[in-house]
């Protein structure tokens, strides 16, 4: 049930943009496709940019197949701040210091945003379905001539979530960054 609601939501969002030939106010400013990065084996998303391309807000649907450690359906809301872009050539810009947060929701019968009543309040202090992540993104942007798309971009994204971060902060002498920082990569197309 949870999964179905999630799929319909994401489908509607992606569809709204895909149908728009002339860009309407509602159609997304960009689309993404991503591998790994803690929001699915493969995920797709769409979003808007604000403040002269300095801020991205996007929604993603991710899937982890059973043979990859799933099965999971994941919805993610992501906020990325791009403080500066570094022109490499006429067409190419690099923004290596994008930062942001994302919130992931797993629609799964074993995971929940609350605990059953048999537990006293605070028996477990966290919940299992929603995770809060910090991200650091590197984005390489290639400007396109003409057509529907203005830029083709590739990005890599490092992230950790609040439970990994707590484990690290309590064990800074033991856990290494390579043990709690996770990686994803993807492509992003920006619409004209």
């Amino acid at each position: 049930m949870k999964t179905r609601v999630l799929l319909i939501l994401c489908g509607a969002m992606l569809g709204a943009g895909a149908r728009a030939q002339n860009r309407s106010a509602l159609s997304p400013d960009f689309y993404t496709a991503q591998f790994a990065g803690s929001i699915g084996y493969i995920s797709v998303g769409a979003g808007y940019t604000f403040f002269k391309n300095k801020m991205d807000v996007s929604l993603h649907y991710g899937f982890v197949p059973k043979r990859m450690g799933g099965e999971f359906h994941i919805a993610t809301a992501r906020f990325v701040y791009q403080p500066w872009q570094w022109p490499i050539s006429k067409r190419l810009t690099l923004s290596p210091f994008n930062t942001g947060i994302f919130i992931s929701y797993h629609a799964d019968s074993d995971l929940s945003t609350s605990w059953p009543s048999r537990y006293e309040d605070g028996y477990y202090w966290w919940q299992t379905a929603i995770r809060f992540h910090l991200l650091w993104e590197q984005r390489l942007s290639f400007a396109l001539n003409g057509g529907r798309f203005s830029h083709l971009q590739v990005f890599t994204q490092l992230n950790t979530n609040e439970l990994y971060a707590i484990s690290y902060l309590l064990n800074t002498g033991s856990i290494k960054p390579s043990e709690f920082v996770k990686l994803g990569m993807g492509v992003r197309v920006a619409l004209r």
């Binding site: 790994a36 982890v64 450690g69 999971f72 797993h106 799964d108 995971l111 990569m185």
Partner: peptide, 24 residues
């Protein structure tokens, strides 16, 4: 940049699909 990416990609553990993964 390409070299750094390869270095990262070499550690399979960093490519996380979900923190709830049942195995990797």
């Amino acid at each position: 940049g390409v070299f750094l990416l390869f270095l990262l990609a070499a550690c399979a553990d960093v490519w996380e699909y979900s923190p709830k993964q049942k195995f990797d």
